[in-house]
């Protein structure tokens, strides 16, 4: 079984309400897709995404794995930080990348400041045994 990655550009969620954004992500995840969203949700939307996920958990949908990769602003100069903040306020937070995957497919996302590792659940594939050669009698 192959993995499906779906890229969602920020433009696609820009005009949506918070509920709309969360719905769009969750609908894709429920189709067993790993979503790569350009930019990030608002902080309160991230929490709302967790809350909505919990409301929808059942025997088939086990939840999500979520990771946000975001450029560190700590080492940025003050004016650059302020400029970035202003742009984010006007245009939304397009920086970074949000990864959301179904818990049944994505086992864990390990994040380090410099790298991201996505572990998928083990898919048991029955290897075909080589057929035994028939012994020739006689």
């Amino acid at each position: 079984m192959g993995l499906t990655l779906q890229f969602i550009p920020y433009l696609e969620i820009e005009g949506l309400s918070s509920i709309g954004r969360i719905r769009k992500l969750l609908n894709a995840v429920k189709e067993n897709k790993i979503v790569l969203l350009e930019g990030r949700l608002r902080k309160e939307e991230e929490t709302e995404l967790i809350k909505t996920t919990m409301e929808e958990i059942n025997s088939e949908f086990k939840g999500i794995e979520l990771a946000v990769i975001y450029p560190e602003s700590q080492n940025m100069a003050f004016f650059r930080k302020a400029k970035q903040h202003f742009i984010n306020m006007l245009l939304g937070d397009r920086q970074g990348l949000t990864i959301v995957g179904p818990a049944s497919v994505v086992k864990e996302i390990k994040k380090d400041p410099n790298k991201i590792q996505l572990f998928t659940t083990d898919v048991k594939v029955k290897a075909k045994r080589p057929s035994k050669k028939k012994k020739n009698k006689g």
Partner: peptide, 8 residues
């Protein structure tokens, strides 16, 4: 505890 996944 806050989690994003819960599997029975």
């Amino acid at each position: 505890g806050i989690a994003t996944r819960i599997d029975y």
